[in-house]
Design a protein around this nucleic acid. Sequence first.
DNA 1: TATGCAGCGTACGCTTCCGTACGGAAATAG
DNA 2: CTATTTCCGTACGGAAGCGTACGCTGCATA
Lengths: 230, 230
Amino acid sequence: MVKHLNRLLAALSADDLALLELGFEKVDLERRYVLETPNKAVDNVYFMETGVASVVAVNGRGERIEVGLIGCEGMSGVTVVMGNHRSPHSTYMQIGGTALCISAADLRTAMSQSPSLQRLLLHFAQIFMTQAAQTAVANGRAKLDERLARWLLMAHDRVSDDEVQLTHEFLSVMLGVRRASVTTALDALKKRGLIEVRRGGITVLDRDAIEKIAGSFYGVPEAEFRRLIG
Amino acid sequence: MVKHLNRLLAALSADDLALLELGFEKVDLERRYVLETPNKAVDNVYFMETGVASVVAVNGRGERIEVGLIGCEGMSGVTVVMGNHRSPHSTYMQIGGTALCISAADLRTAMSQSPSLQRLLLHFAQIFMTQAAQTAVANGRAKLDERLARWLLMAHDRVSDDEVQLTHEFLSVMLGVRRASVTTALDALKKRGLIEVRRGGITVLDRDAIEKIAGSFYGVPEAEFRRLIG
DNA sequence: TATGCAGCGTACGCTTCCGTACGGAAATAG
DNA sequence: CTATTTCCGTACGGAAGCGTACGCTGCATA
């Protein structure tokens, strides 16, 4: 039996997995690929294998900011799990990768047939909600270097090696700050030898030290994941 | 038949309501009363009638900040609806009031007996999640006056008259800023004639103008509520 | 090999909000 | 009625991050 790269699928029973696998299609998702559009029905749900997607909100001034991050530990389309068809946020790939795609209709059917499947996906929805809440905490209370550290750790958790491939520009959208502020903050980490910065990529060198900077702004949803899914 | 003050209960069918009403107990909730404690099992769930409760997170420095607001449109214990027993946040009364209280166990039983009840409560959970996400947006992108306007509007939606009873100190915890910053920001609104400020209370005089200040930082979860629950 | 562009480093004045703090006014208790 | 506590108004220096902008560099294309 093939082990799934996606940690939600890896946690499912063989029966529940079988319910989903009929509808699965493996897809490549390039950077900037749009998984969900605000207030439009969600047609497909993606169980990420590699790569990272962001859930992003836009305000009235056209400014964007990230409210959630999804990688191999999760899925897009949490709204579908909650019995809904759309959400006010957009979701797109931040770092390219692959995923198993299933139609929202097929997922709904599978969930209605298996309480244990529904249970697991609802648990993930709660973790995702906790992530959004902790993002609110970080945005309200943390300094830029702490928020940057938090984001790097969350991204690091979701990539296979130590390299996070993205530009300062993208990162600035995630954090809701200027591109120049990101450059400066990254430079501070670089000078302390905690990361390596290249054009279009950041390599994590000293994760422990970065965790110290992030402090309690990192780790709450991650602990919930371990508790609820394992 | 008695109409329920709580808007979730008001939206339920007679059958679903009957499932819950056996377990209900009407309770008075004073300001500062704690409904949920971080990482402890949730014993009771409250369908608010009057008053306002806050879901609050604490960071490693002991600073607090609000991630969600609950009034007559909702319930505490969203975590129970998602099939869980606890959450990393605390919930307590911000403005005293009354609620219908039901044990988490009874709520779980009722939900398992009625898919339509589960559906409605899940819809509320999604609205609550949207609120947390929008709080992240506001904390990351909005200026203090915008966030204050947003909070006043959300509180105003949840009280019967135009008076919101709370101190600057409480409000500063909600917004995650200094008490003095709240005083200054309120003063600016007062000078424009949009609110009246008294010791321990704020009266909304010109809601439309306050909505203009809040801009798109207010209204997203409210629209979701209308769409999903009505 | 030249050209263009996306991405990065840096700089400067400015705004917002913080940390701290002091004093006065309104409510509450003795 | 006095004492005490809670709450509110205000002030000042300072830090963080913004808006803007200019120039350099690595990579891709022709």
